[in-house]
Amino acid sequence: MTYVDLKDIRVSYDGKNNILKDLNLSIEKGELVSLLGPSGCGKTTTLRVIAGLIEPNDGDFVVDNKNLTRVPVHKRNFGMVFQSYALFPHLTVKENVGFGLKLRKEDKTTMNPKIQDILEVTGLAELGDRYPKQLSGGQRQRVALARALVIEPKLLLLDEPLSNLDAKLRVQMRIEIKRIQRKLGITSVFVTHDQEECFSISDRVAVMNNGIIEQFDTPEEIYNRPKTEFVARFIGFENFFNLTKQGEKTYTTSEGHMLKTSQSWDDTKLVATIRPDDINILPKGTEQDTNMIPGKVVVRTFLGKSYQYEVETNVGKILVNGPKETAYSSGEELLLQFPEEKLILV
């Protein structure tokens, strides 16, 4: 059941270049959806359209069957956590958190317990009378979260909320955000450029590029089966080469090597991709078979848990990770085997 619906959203600042191009996105109730992509892909713009900070040039934005496209930001009742946290420096933690409640003209008797509750949930119970300046980065982050949550928003929007924290705190906070989000069952949209962060926290991920959504799927699906070359590159696929379709699930490289795949596509010309970890290295002299391409090691680098080889083949340079038990030296010839279930067509 769709709860949040973006229909054909188009945003252009100058009337010529579109920041968002007819973007469509449907989010279900209680879901945590991430918008993932490089800077400039339009993910923050999308979030700001949802928040109401940007009015789209075209398209509709619907929440709970109500069209909110022209509803101004302050009437939407969405909680938003900003990248800079945007805490009000002239107000205490309690006053920051109570800001939204006060605007809703809430009574002190109902307001104070609400503030106290959310401060407990976010682990800030002791810090209510401090000013933002007197807090650490992680604490400020929690205040921003508490301030967004206390108004009981229909949607929680998070704009790269963890990017100002150090690595250890970032992992801690994302677990914390996930826990609170689950506990309150609040539908959330999370913007990030960090793939690991995104996969760990999200129910579904929308990978964005150039103002469109390239793929919208579960983290597992995106990690294992990217649908476009852009998505594949963005999530760590390194090797790309062209294939021509010969028959059902059977393809040849430009040099005539036969490759079988578990996926089936209708296009005759395709690009195949595979992660360095998923390629098997076989010593020279192994009997040549389908899904095998010969090559020569150019460079070997030690990665700690494995060796990485840059292998020169007739489909181009291929990066391969091999076990550290057997080290091939540069100049050595070998065979690369591409398992058919790991070979992705995009």
Binding site: G79, F82, L87, G100, R147
Partner: peptide
């Protein structure tokens, strides 16, 4: 003054 501060106030219901 960070513009996000104003936006934050608006998301919290301030016109």
């Amino acid at each position: 003054i960070d513009l996000e501060m104003v936006e934050a106030a608006e998301t919290l219901g301030a016109n």
